[in-house]
Design a binder for these strands. Structure first.
Lengths: 161, 161
DNA sequence: TGCAATTAGTTTACATGTAATCTATTCTCA
DNA sequence: TGAGAATAGATTACATGTAAACTAATTGCA
């Protein structure tokens, strides 16, 4: 695997090669893991995005404004509307306009959705185990830490160019 | 601060927590980096996927069958058709059916596309630097290695469930 | 030799991500 | 208090990712 990735790189300076390799590895790992999770969620009639919205709502424990959900998803605003639309159509969330500030729409998770999430919990844990169970705890910790550190270059600059 | 001790006691299954944290960090980092690269490519009229197709074609140095490109993109087959369609419409690639095996369609990169890629090279390197330049070489190496290791759990199992 | 299995690519249907623009409300403050 | 700025969402347009079904060409092999 290492060799193949490096083969795709045009040899330049070692340091730039290193950075590019990290980026490619990041993309590749994310894609492959994402595929697996996507397949699992699909077995329960959900997409990854839908699952994530529901997970956030369950974690919050009470209705949330659309934009607050969108924020936690690290998604851009427009996508959230359609996402909630489809969840509502499936009876997994309910929309309710706030009476005090009529601009705000609260989204609440339904019992039906909570039931599905509960069904997913175990297989999801199992999948995590399958994907990462072969790595010792110390390495997982290091990996998390390094990913966080990588993101520090964008800290406080989320929206800027 | 209720204390680190209590926090540790409250942890249910530390190991699974760790795995989930890695996955979330992976998603987040990938999203944020992906946004940056996407914006850069858009300045040159390309999407990330389009850039990647062109980069692969430049690297190969000669026309390639559609499916071979798709394979390297870690993408599923159907997406490649539309992608090539749009690149062709922009005059960035040319399609040519193979005479020996009439099922195969070769895709060739154009001079126009090579010119755009050349323009992108420097800003792209600069962006890499900006995103990862704050990490010492040793950490980049470790990060790459751990990402590769994470993917080993799916080795030789690309298509399976 | 002839037909089933493969293979390369396309098409269709749907969910999503991104940007730009628009509407309805609420807030600010001169 | 009243107009402009800010905020919450929705809408539109387009590129993409995914699955499933389809066409055309080639291969394998009894």
């Amino acid at each position: 695997m290492t060799g193949r990735l490096q083969n795709e790189l045009k040899k330049k300076r070692p340091f730039e090669e290193m950075e590019e390799e990290v980026v490619l590895n990041l993309l590749r790992t994310n894609d492959q893991f994402g595929n697996r999770f996507g397949r699992l969620f699909r077995e329960y009639g959900l997409t990854s995005s839908q699952y994530n919205v529901l997970r956030i709502l369950r974690g919050e424990g009470k209705p949330m404004p659309s934009l607050e959900i969108a924020e936690r998803l690290v998604q851009v605003v427009p996508a959230i509307t359609g996402l909630i639309d489809r969840l509502e159509k499936q009876g997994l969330v309910v929309r309710q306009r706030c009476t005090e500030d009529r601009r705000v729409v609260y989204v609440e998770i339904t019992e039906k959705a909570l039931g599905i999430l509960k069904q997913i919990d175990k297989p999801l844990t199992k999948l995590h185990k399958r994907l990462l169970g072969h790595m010792p705890r110390a390495e997982l910790k290091t990996l998390s830490r390094l990913l966080e550190k990588a993101r520090q270059s964008l800290a406080g600059d989320e929206g800027g160019l």
